[in-house]
Amino acid sequence: VTTYKLVINGKTLKGETTTKAVDAETAEKAFKQYANDNGVDGVWTYDDATKTFTVTE
């Protein structure tokens, strides 16, 4: 299990959150659900070296 980070650069929501997941794909699903629940819809990137997803509106 690895800790992944999400950086949110939204129009109305900015911040960070983390999740523990077995792989990046599982973390991405959780983060996309989180973003959707919070009304954030943007461009996604992922940096494997830092295990960090970024979504920018």
Rank of each mutant, 00 (worst) to 15 (best):
D48H: 11
D23P: 01
G39Y: 06
A49N: 11
G39N: 15
G39F: 07
T17V: 13
D48E: 14
V1Y: 13
T54L: 06
A24N: 07
K51F: 12
A27G: 02
A21W: 03
V22Y: 15
N9V: 15
T54G: 03
F53Q: 00
E16R: 07
A30F: 15
W44A: 01
G15Q: 15
N38K: 13
K51W: 05
G10C: 10
V40N: 03
D23Q: 04
K20Q: 15
T18Y: 13
Q33S: 09
G39A: 07
A35H: 02
T3P: 04
A21L: 03
Y4S: 01
E16A: 07
T17W: 14
K11G: 08
D41P: 04
K29F: 07
L6T: 01
V40E: 02
T50N: 07
E16M: 13
A21I: 03
A49R: 08
E57I: 10
K11R: 13
T3E: 14
T45M: 10
G15W: 15
K5P: 01
K5C: 07
T52Q: 04
Q33A: 12
A49F: 11
N9I: 15
L6N: 01
V7T: 05
T18W: 09
V1H: 12
K11Q: 09
Y4Q: 01
D23W: 04
T17Y: 13
V22T: 15
T17M: 14
I8H: 03
L6E: 00
Y34C: 04
V55H: 01
D41L: 15
V40P: 02
G39C: 06
A24T: 14
K11N: 11
T18G: 03
D37M: 13
F53R: 00
T19M: 14
F31Q: 00
E57M: 09
T17C: 11
K29M: 09
E28G: 09
D47M: 04
T18I: 11
A27P: 01
T12F: 14
A35N: 03
L13T: 12
V40G: 02
V55D: 00
T54E: 05
T52R: 03
I8T: 03
G15V: 15
Y34M: 04
Y46T: 01
F53L: 01
K5H: 14
K11P: 08
T2Y: 14
A49L: 13
V40S: 03
V40L: 11
V22G: 09
K14D: 05
K51C: 07
E57A: 07
E57K: 04
E28V: 08
G39Q: 09
A35L: 10
T50F: 04
G42D: 01
Y34N: 02
T50K: 07
K11F: 10
Q33R: 14
G10S: 12
T45F: 07
E28N: 05
N9H: 12
T52K: 03
T2Q: 12
E25I: 14
T45V: 09
L6W: 02
T3W: 12
N38S: 08
E28Q: 11
V7G: 02
T26N: 09
A24D: 05
V1N: 10
Y46K: 01
T18P: 02
L13Q: 08
T52I: 07
T19D: 03
D41Q: 13
K32D: 02
D48A: 14
T3A: 06
K5S: 06
T50H: 07
E25P: 12
T17I: 14
K14N: 13
Y4G: 01
A49M: 10
G42C: 02
Y46G: 00
A35G: 03
Y46I: 02
F53M: 02
A27H: 00
K11Y: 10
W44P: 00
N38M: 15
T56I: 07
D23Y: 04
A49I: 11
K32C: 05
D23A: 04
N36E: 12
K5I: 13
V43L: 11
V43H: 11
D47S: 06
T54Q: 05
T45H: 11
K32P: 00
G15H: 13
G42K: 02
G39W: 05
V43S: 08
N38C: 09
W44L: 03
D48T: 09
Y46E: 00
K29H: 08
K20Y: 14
G42T: 02
T52C: 06
T54D: 03
Q33G: 06
A21F: 06
T19A: 08
G42Q: 02
D41C: 10
V1E: 15
V40C: 04
T45L: 07
D37L: 12
G39S: 05
K51P: 00
N9M: 11
L6Y: 01
G42I: 01
K5G: 03
E28D: 04
T12Q: 14
V7F: 07
W44V: 02
K14F: 11
K5Y: 15
K32G: 03
Y46W: 04
G10I: 14
E57F: 08
T56Y: 10
G15F: 15
D41H: 14
T52E: 03
V43K: 09
A49T: 12
I8W: 07
Y46F: 06
K11L: 14
G39K: 09
N38Y: 13
D23F: 05
E28K: 11
T54W: 10
T50P: 02
T18A: 07
A27C: 02
A27M: 01
F31T: 00
D48W: 06
T56K: 04
A24K: 15
N9L: 13
F31L: 06
D47H: 07
V55I: 11
V40D: 02
L6C: 07
V7Q: 06
G15R: 10
T52D: 01
L13M: 14
I8K: 01
K29R: 15
L13Y: 14
D23S: 10
A24V: 13
V55Y: 02
V43Q: 08
T12H: 15
D41E: 13
K29S: 09
V1P: 12
V7I: 15
D37Q: 11
T17R: 11
G10Q: 06
K32I: 09
A24P: 12
V43P: 03
L13F: 15
K11D: 08
G39T: 04
I8N: 01
T19K: 06
T19E: 05
A21V: 04
T2S: 13
